[in-house]
Computed example of a mutant assay.
Amino acid sequence: MTYHQPANYHPFHIIGADRPARWVVTCDHATNTVPAEVGGGDLGLPSEDMARHIAYDVGAAGVTWALAELLNAPAILSNFSRLVIDPNRGEDDPTLLMKLYDGTIVPANRHADGEEIERRLNAYYRPYHDALTKLIASRETPVILSIHSFTPQLSGRSPRPWHVGLLYADDTRLALPLLDRLSKETDLCIGANEPYGGHLPGDAIDRHAIDNGHPNVLIEIRNDLIRTDEQQVAWAERLAPILQEVLAETGL
């Protein structure tokens, strides 16, 4: 399947740039778009693989849009597949450009060399991060909220029981109070640094929040719970008041 973009393709979208809230909502893996300059807009994968978590965070973009509106906050969303180049990795991370992911070989990446990686960094990755830097700088006291989703089960692995996971590293000022609050939702299974560990050195939260001392949290939602527009809005409506409540209580 070939993915076509209009002539005005842009590697990211910003919504609500003038909204006044302290929150800055990010969605690093918002879309499975393959820009035309990469393999003619085709990574060589079948459409069913491009619709999976290996290509993007299923449902995360819709949650981001709805949350940003409810929080009266700006949001930035990437507009290139994580398989093109992963904006949630440091530039020196070996998983920046994946050639094999969850058992699937990515044909267009098999022979990508340093020159091709640098081209993709300049065309997609760096513009996204530059825009995020400017968006955060437009807030006097920004709070970074990163929205992701995860698959219920990796190939050959055990099912993941968590509905929501909170990821954090050294800066737990917001994450731990939020974890405590969400743990009181009796119908939810909440993971602390699940389904995988906290931030990686050089990833988006490390680069934009932790290095600059901004309060932050990364929320992972299991993607079978946010596949429809209605589910995405419902989760945003559930999370938004909790986020506002916890931020106010922390006094950050």
Rank of each mutant, 00 (worst) to 15 (best):
G156E: 01
S149Y: 05
K184Q: 14
A137I: 09
E185P: 00
P215F: 05
S138P: 03
L166A: 12
G202T: 11
T151N: 03
L132F: 12
L135A: 07
T186D: 13
T186K: 14
T151P: 03
L145S: 09
H148Q: 07
D171P: 06
E140Q: 13
C189H: 14
L178F: 09
K184I: 01
R181A: 14
G165L: 00
N193R: 02
I144E: 08
F150I: 00
Q153P: 01
S158W: 00
G213C: 09
G165D: 02
Y196H: 07
D171T: 10
F150G: 04
D203Y: 07
S149H: 01
H199S: 11
D180E: 15
H214K: 07
S138Y: 04
S155N: 11
P142Y: 04
S155H: 11
G202V: 10
D211H: 11
C189D: 10
G191E: 01
P215V: 05
D170W: 13
A169T: 11
A192N: 14
V164N: 09
I136C: 06
V164I: 15
P152R: 02
S138R: 06
T151H: 02
L188H: 11
G202S: 10
R157A: 12
D180G: 11
L174H: 03
G198M: 07
R157W: 06
F150M: 00
T186W: 06
A175E: 08
S146W: 07
P177D: 08
L188A: 12
D180S: 14
E185I: 13
F150K: 05
T133Q: 12
P161R: 00
P215C: 04
A204P: 00
H208A: 05
T172G: 06
G156V: 00
C189E: 12
V164R: 12
I144M: 09
A192D: 15
C189W: 12
A209F: 03
S183E: 14
D180Y: 13
L145W: 13
P215L: 05
V164M: 15
L176I: 12
T186S: 14
S183F: 08
D180W: 13
Y196S: 05
A192R: 15
T172A: 14
E194R: 12
L154D: 02
I205G: 08
G156H: 04
L176F: 10
H214G: 06
L188S: 08
L166C: 11
D206M: 00
A169I: 01
